[in-house]
Design a protein around this nucleic acid. Structure first.
Lengths: 166, 166
DNA sequence: AACAATATTGAGAATCGATTGCATCTAAGG
DNA sequence: CCTTAGATGCAATCGATTCTCAATATTGTT
């Protein structure tokens, strides 16, 4: 659908900030953007836009189901465009990368559990936290180097001695 | 285990604020308490304690694994005592009640999915949002009354007419 | 194209939950 | 009791978000 039409359908005027923000989410390499991220990206394009406007527009887009609001572990909120199927997330604690996944079995269990509790399920949020493939590999590589050179262990022992002297 | 011992094992002195806070979590009807909740409950007991202390102590207890820190959908953080088995949560959007559940099948799928993505799983957070049993029942009851009396529908139509006049 | 009605904006102040710096207390081991 | 590392309350501060309001931009209508 054309963007201006998409906005009009939500009762929102097609203003420059709104158009640019939507464009960002449709074309950015990174799928999950915080308000600050959006702010900085728009400044880079020489757009004179206030942070307050970003927050307002993001909220409106989330209300209109154009964007989805996500909040990982006490982090700042991030938004992603709402055009793929429902999914959950794996968040890398090291590099911050967010991977998406979907599992039918989990979805079904959730519905079953809700039913068993007499709970009317509206929404859910499932996030896995840990280290992504790349960061696990990097950690292993570093551990290997460290075992050969042992620069930090030696240094730590030295520091400990020094601190006891003074 | 005795409380003072539990504290000492974590390298924490057995101070009045800490003892009272732990006591609260062990005896309160409500299992999930925010820093503000704790603050108000302690004030009620005529404890002269600063909010900063609450935050500090809660953080220390979470570090020491005495409490668990939870964060539901952009809400303020809440804490619960860490003495039962791992579980996830159902949060009622209406009354705020938090129910706990555990599902082996979901846990296993999570581990499988992580493995498939080369992801080293450290932690996860699963929360179901919706209406609890009681609130569903109440909603139904109110809907029934409303169908009989229809006070709002009529009033809304009147308002609409009036707004077009002036 | 200019208008009027209305929604939207940017800037800064205000708010919210949470954290931190600091001078003052206090628990715990001698 | 006395020392001292650790803990406290208070106030200042933080980062994220929301609010306020005067100025501006969009939209449907002439």
């Amino acid at each position: 659908m054309e963007i201006p039409q998409q906005l009009r359908d939500s009762g929102l005027k097609a203003t420059l900030p709104r158009l640019k923000i939507l464009e960002l989410f449709q074309h950015s390499e990174v799928r999950h953007l915080s308000a600050e991220d959006v702010y900085r990206l728009l400044l880079k394009e020489n757009l004179d836009v206030g942070l307050a406007t970003i927050y307002r527009v993001l909220m409106q887009f989330a209300d209109a189901k154009i964007l989805l609001r996500r909040q990982f572990e006490g982090d700042r909120a991030v938004f992603e465009i709402n055009q793929s199927e429902h999914h959950d997330h794996m968040v890398c604690a090291d590099c911050g990368k967010v991977e998406e996944f979907f599992d039918e079995a989990i979805e079904e269990r959730q519905m079953l559990l809700a039913k068993q509790h007499g709970f009317k399920l509206r929404d859910h949020s499932l996030s896995l936290y840990g280290l992504c493939k790349d960061c696990v590999a990097r950690d292993h590589a570093e551990a290997r180097v460290s075992r050969l050179q042992q620069p930090y262990a030696g240094s730590a022992r030295l520091m400990s001695k020094l601190s006891k002297l003074k």
